[in-house]
Write a protein that binds this DNA or RNA. Structure first.
Lengths: 343, 343
DNA sequence: CAGAACAATTGGATCGATACAATTGTGCGA
DNA sequence: TCGCACAATTGTATCGATCCAATTGTTCTG
């Protein structure tokens, strides 16, 4: 925990008051743009402020007013471009509201998540946007956060509780993707990648199963392939799709990273993705548009989701008595060349 | 600017004191793990703390102690995976030091950068890590930040001033890359991508020119091609490499995004990257290892750089009288299949 | 058993800005 | 010129935790 320099005292509102012969209260009024101060005094004070290079101490004000001007954003993995975009959106909207973002990352560790949450509470975040680490216990989080700090859970299920939820329409997304492949004439469609026990993976798999069931197709067990949700792991597992004949002709992937890995693995085995085998991803990360071939995927617009999350938590902080909301953000199909009609 | 709920008063240290019949001072001592308190009292106090669900108010403590427990991180573009990794590293190291990260992004806007800096100062950041927006004025930033808050400038030049600098060894990086290509037997080597006026691009181009000069090769003007530093733009500009004969046989790229775009553009024109034309990137983003073919590049390890930046600013906050440091982080060549000996 | 040495506890001022009641200054009509 | 309404300004308690000097308990030694 760092300490601040003590070399030269910091300028306070009292210094300004003394410097131009008014009371601290008046300076405070000037800072708040109160119409009560005469414009001549205001100018005198403002001149003194710039002359002395005074910096407002928001922490002191927050203490007095029992308010907070920060919102915490806790994600599991910043280096995932999806969350990075989300974070950028959150920060954008918070900054626009004159609010600062407290960043925390958990690296999927429940223990670190506990520590980070505690730290954010101590730092008096007005609200918390949380994308829970895998294996989080909703009860425990609720107990830790308490009823005073509003919480918005993003991206993953955490059971029901006294918090707002902003979820993606995972199930509908993969259903759309699967229906798209069915419409192209595919019948043997795999669901590729993701961790069996993650809630988002479960939901996406369910959407796939819905669409298959609606088409009266029973997926073979070997069409469901689990991998770590990374490009590299996905590329390694491509072989599993072709162990038994007849092999699938298309795959709905857990996310774009996996889909890109799959395309890579296909190319490495001499199958041309988009022609010999059709791939659909999920997320629409920037790379999806420029991969080889460009990837058909489900877009969820993480930046807009970030802005949305920020606005929601600000609304709740503004009025804690609002009813709990549960928003399902839309997912839309973006068709690119990785999926094209069977010839 | 949000306000906090007023529904039920927050528990303060005084409540705990009353609750177990000691003075606030004693509770404070317990919180600071002071050895002065008798262990029986300590236990009584701790029990009361958990019973009432007390949350420490670090802002109040910071005010009294004239300290701060936060460090600001200001980047131009979080959605750039390079900065996202960097941010993850910063947060990791700050969290380990019990410090919280104030995030701000500027989107390359000098005006937003001014606003964000001002906000961070008001929020009493103990120090600021800044990757300046393009076109920043070092003077202006110095004036704004003042002498009280230590500043660490990352990634871009900003003139010399009262701040620490953590830079990448751009020039040496591209020199290494170019020497690698020369060693493979290439002579007609292009420098591809980047904005002419960005400081990092200039440095990287200089490294390339150094190596070429050392090999007594004068680059043709059409070997130097400017593009926006994105995959898409790079892919669009590939044609420019081949307008005149004899065309280059290899390219050192401004960064990996550009290099991947170049590979894409080559494939689209029927040239096999890595065989018909050799490509080297810069940054070693995760995609580089799994592109087609895997990309030879210059690794700078952004996560480690982030940790390093955090540690440096913490050290400076701890002792403001340290001499100014200027660290050039090493860049190392990672050879993959996108570069292989001419056959 | 006095009193020194030490352990444990506490009152109250303080950090910097704000809110509120109270005070002072100004203009104007009677 | 007085008094009144209203505009400006100000003194001071406060937010929650900390720190210092001062106080109270406890133990031990001669």
């Amino acid at each position: 925990m760092p300490r601040r320099s003590t070399s030269r005292r910091k300028i306070t509102l009292r210094d300004i008051a003394q410097g131009c012969g008014v009371s601290p209260a008046t300076v405070s009024l000037v800072l708040q743009r109160s119409p009560l101060v005469r414009s001549s005094t205001r100018q005198r004070v403002e001149a003194e402020i710039t002359r002395q290079g005074y910096v407002y101490n928001r922490a002191a004000a927050n203490l007095r007013q029992r308010t907070s001007s920060s919102v915490a954003l806790i994600v599991n993995d910043l280096s995932n471009p999806y969350f990075a975009e989300f974070a950028a959106g959150v920060d954008e909207a918070l900054a626009a509201a004159g609010c600062v973002t407290l960043l925390g990352s958990t690296g999927e560790s429940v223990e670190r998540q506990r520590a980070v949450l505690a730290s954010m509470l101590e730092h008096a975040a007005a609200g918390i946007i949380l994308s829970p680490a895998e294996g989080s216990d909703g009860e425990a989080i609720a107990r830790l956060v308490g009823a005073h700090t509003p919480l918005l859970v993003f991206n993953r299920e955490l059971g029901a509780g006294e918090w707002d939820v902003l979820a993606l329409d995972n199930r509908r997304g993969t259903r759309l993707a699967t229906e798209h492949l069915l419409a192209l004439g595919h019948r043997r469609i795999a669901f590729f990648g993701g961790h069996r026990d993650s809630s988002s993976c479960r939901e996406r798999r369910d959407g796939y199963l819905d669409a298959m069931a609606a088409a009266a197709i029973v997926p073979e067990p070997q069409w469901l392939i689990e991998t770590a949700p990374t490009r590299l792991e996905a590329a390694r597992q491509v072989g599993a799709l072709f162990v038994r004949d007849p092999a699938p002709t298309a795959a709905v992937c857990y996310n774009d990273a996996v889909a890109l890995g799959l395309q890579l693995g296909l190319a490495a085995r001499g199958r041309r993705p988009g022609q010999d085998f059709v791939v659909v991803g999920f997320d629409d990360i920037p790379e999806a548009a420029v991969s080889l071939p460009p990837l058909t995927t489900i877009a969820t617009d993480p930046r807009a989701r970030g802005r949305q999350a920020a606005e929601r938590i600000l609304a709740r902080v503004g009025d804690p008595d609002l009813a709990i909301t549960r928003t399902i953000a839309p997912a839309r199909l973006v068709v690119r060349e990785s999926s094209c009609p069977l010839l």
